[in-house]
Write a protein that binds this DNA or RNA. Structure first.
Length: 267
DNA sequence: ATGACGGATCTAATCCGA
């Protein structure tokens, strides 16, 4: 038996409920963590998930922006929402799910994008992003307890091979040194294991996001790895593999992010 | 060669994403 966890920045859960149902039918993850749901909880398409076999929901949504959700085939326990940078902006939700004899804690994050200008003195959005990562680092020990998995759109591509051109993206928000070093400090503070890179060597390019603005996303392949699955050491030891569902970028009216699935052996 | 797009919102132009 195994536990499979998927993460997907869906860019509107209501607009793309059809694509989500297709993904769930094809890949049948036990749990799906969504970001950018852009949907108040009262309007979440609960019925569609229930009918697809995912009746257990943990929601933190708001109108128009941000929003995270955990949908599950298995019951969810201990749902909680953390807030960062003194804002209530629906960027974290956590829940526990039964896995063998234990309960696994899932943290689902949507880290601020950070705007265009990578200078915190000129751009308050970038300052917010850096402060958010810093607060996560302060909370790392609490978040990364044994039995924990962290997923989500972290909006940072930390390794050189996490972007199509390391050199050309060094001054582009998502791959600047202050961000990548900050994210790696947060990871080390857990410590968290980068589960995707356990299975895809760091020498190999690996992307989860391709801009809408490139008409020819597949041929030009100017992607970035912005979505991540991390695990505490005990869970990382149980990781069996990951899948990046790249074909989802080519579906009708797609999200600009694709789903990532990780599978863990049951304790 | 970082936008040529695409989403949500007080449907029209604006904010946002990264």
């Amino acid at each position: 038996m195994s536990l499979s966890i998927a993460t997907w920045n869906i860019n509107s859960v209501r607009l793309r409920i059809g694509l989500i149902l297709q993904f769930l039918a094809e890949h049948q993850p036990d749990v799906l963590c969504l970001q950018e749901t852009k949907c108040p909880d009262a309007l979440f398409p609960e019925k569609a998930f229930r009918e697809a076999g995912y009746p257990h929901l943990a929601l933190s949504g708001q109108k128009g922006y941000n929003g995270v959700a955990i949908v599950s085939r298995r019951p969810l326990f201990g749902v909680d929402r953390n807030h960062f940078c003194d804002r209530i902006d629906c960027r974290h939700i956590e829940a526990k799910v039964e896995s063998g004899q234990q309960r696994v804690t899932l943290h689902n994050f949507y880290v601020p994008a950070g705007g265009d200008e990578p200078d915190p003195d000129k751009n308050v959005k970038f300052a917010h992003k850096l402060a958010f990562i810093e607060e996560l680092t302060q909370a790392a020990e609490r978040l990364a307890q044994p039995g924990s998995i962290l997923v989500g759109d972290l909006n940072i591509a930390p390794l050189e091979t996490d972007v199509w051109s390391h050199r050309q993206l060094l001054k582009v928000v998502s791959h600047t040194p202050v961000e990548t070093e900050g994210l790696l400090r947060f990871q080390a503070a857990g410590p968290w294991v980068d589960v995707m890179r356990r299975f895809v060597p760091p020498e190999e390019k690996l992307f989860t996001w391709w801009s809408y603005r490139s008409p020819n996303w597949e041929a030009s392949n100017r992607g970035r790895r912005l979505d991540h699955i991390w695990a505490a050491a005990d869970m990382a030891a149980r990781a069996q593999g990951i899948k990046v569902i790249k074909e989802a970028r080519g579906w009708e009216r797609p999200s600009d992010h694709v789903p990532v699935i990780a599978t863990f052996a049951e304790a």
